[in-house]
Design a protein around this nucleic acid. Sequence first.
DNA 1: GAGTGGTCTAGACCACCTT
DNA 2: AGGTGGTCTAGACCACTCG
Lengths: 240, 240
Amino acid sequence: MKIRQNLIPVYYRLAEDIRLAIESGKLKDGDMLPTEGQLGENYGISRMTVRQGLSLLAEAGLIATVKGKGTFVTRLRLNKLVIDLHQNADGNPFRYRLVGVKLGREDHEAVRQLGLTAGAKVILLKRLLYQNEQAVAVEEKWLPYLRGKPLLETQLEYADFPEVVAKHQDSVPVRNDAILSVGSLSVEQAALLGEEPGSPALLIRQVIYSRDDQPLGISYMVCHKERFQLKATSYSAISR
Amino acid sequence: MKIRQNLIPVYYRLAEDIRLAIESGKLKDGDMLPTEGQLGENYGISRMTVRQGLSLLAEAGLIATVKGKGTFVTRLRLNKLVIDLHQNADGNPFRYRLVGVKLGREDHEAVRQLGLTAGAKVILLKRLLYQNEQAVAVEEKWLPYLRGKPLLETQLEYADFPEVVAKHQDSVPVRNDAILSVGSLSVEQAALLGEEPGSPALLIRQVIYSRDDQPLGISYMVCHKERFQLKATSYSAISR
DNA sequence: GAGTGGTCTAGACCACCTT
DNA sequence: AGGTGGTCTAGACCACTCG
C-alpha cells in the first residue's frame, strides 16, 4: 500500500531539505551527507530516487560526490557568473536596427581571424541596438559569404548574433567565446550613438565556432558607457 | 549472459552518439528524437539508462523534453556566457596584495546598500590584483563588521571576494550579482595602477547575498583597461 | 485510447576507497 | 573485508498530449 504525493516528487523534497540545511548553515562546507542508503531509509524511498534528488544538488553545485567515499557539501562557486547578452542590466531585451550591409573583400582583423582563403568574400553587417527608443550600442558582424544562404531582413532585425550565424551557416555553431574590455568610440560609432568620438566604451568581442573549432562569425559590440551595463549573476536554482 | 563494456558507461555513449548527430547537422533544431522506449530497444538497454543519457544532453542544453509529446533538439543558447572572475582572459589566476584595511563608520554608497542600521561598523578592504608582477586591478570591498569574526591575513592575501565573505560571515552566501560597466580611475586608483587619473577602466561591482536576500558584502573592482580583459564562454561539455 | 515523458521500485553487480 | 557511490535492469503507475 503506497501513498503517493503527486504534487511534489519525493526526490525534489529530499533535495530541498538538504538545500535548506546547507543554506541555513546546518550542513557546512566539507560535511559528509548521510549515505545514499541511509537517506533512502530515512525517507522510505529507493536508492535510485535518492540519487535523482542528489543529482539536482550536484548540478546546482551544492554537493559533490566522491566514488568510494561519500557525498560532501561544497562551497558554492560564486566566482562563476552568467551573463545574458540578450538583455541589458535592467532586464529588458534589445531591439535591433540594421544600419549597413557590405559584401566584399574587406581588410580587417576579423576577416583574417575567420581563417578564409585569400580573396574570399565576407559579409559585414552593422546594427544598432535600441532600448526605449535610445541607441545603446553598435554591433559589427563579420560572416563568411556563402552562396545560397541569403540573409533575411527579418532575421537581421530581430535575431541576436548567435542566431544569425546559425541561420546563415551550414556548420552548427557550438561555442561562443567572448572578451570584454574597454575601448573608445570611432567617429562613425560616436555619430550613431550621439556621443563624442574617442569617448570610452565597453567592448564585447564574440567569436562563434563550429565543432571543429572553425570560426563561423565574429562580432564586435561597442556599448555606450552609461546606457549599457552588463548584468552577471551566479544564481543557480534547483528545478523541477 | 551480459557483456559489459566497463570503460565507458552505456548512457554516456548514447549521449555522445546523439550529440554528434546534432553537431554534425544530422539532427536539426526542432527535430524529435526517437522515444525513450525506442532508444532503449536500439541500444538494448533499459529505459532508465536511456533517460540518464538524455539528461546529460538536456543539462548541456542540446535537447529539451516535453511531457506527453517527446524529446526535441534545441538550438544551443550561445547568448548565455560564463565568466570566471578568478582569472584573466589569458587563463592565469590572480595574486592579491592587501593595501589597506579600515574599520569604522564610512560614508559610501556601498555602506547604505549593505542595509546596516545607522552607525553600524563596516570593514573596508583594499587589495591590488597582480599578474606577472604587474598590478592589473584595484579591489575595494565592504563587509559589515562582526565581532568574533576576525579577518585572517592569509585569507586576505589569497582568497577571492566570495571566499572572504564566506569566511567572515555567519550567514551562508548563496548568490553573487555583478554589474560590468565602464568608469574612470580615481587619483588613488590611478596611483596604484601607475596610470593617469581619470583614464577609463572596466568596473565590476559585485554584491553577495544570503538566502534571505541580505547583502553580505559588496566589492568594486577597477580594472586596468589594457592589462585586464574578461573572458566569457558558452562552452558546456557533457561530462562523465 | 494510444503514445509520450515523469516518477519510483527493489533489486543486482561494479569500481573505488579505507582499514 | 566492508562501505561508498556508479551503473543498470525490468518492471510499474502516473500525468500529459493528441487525435
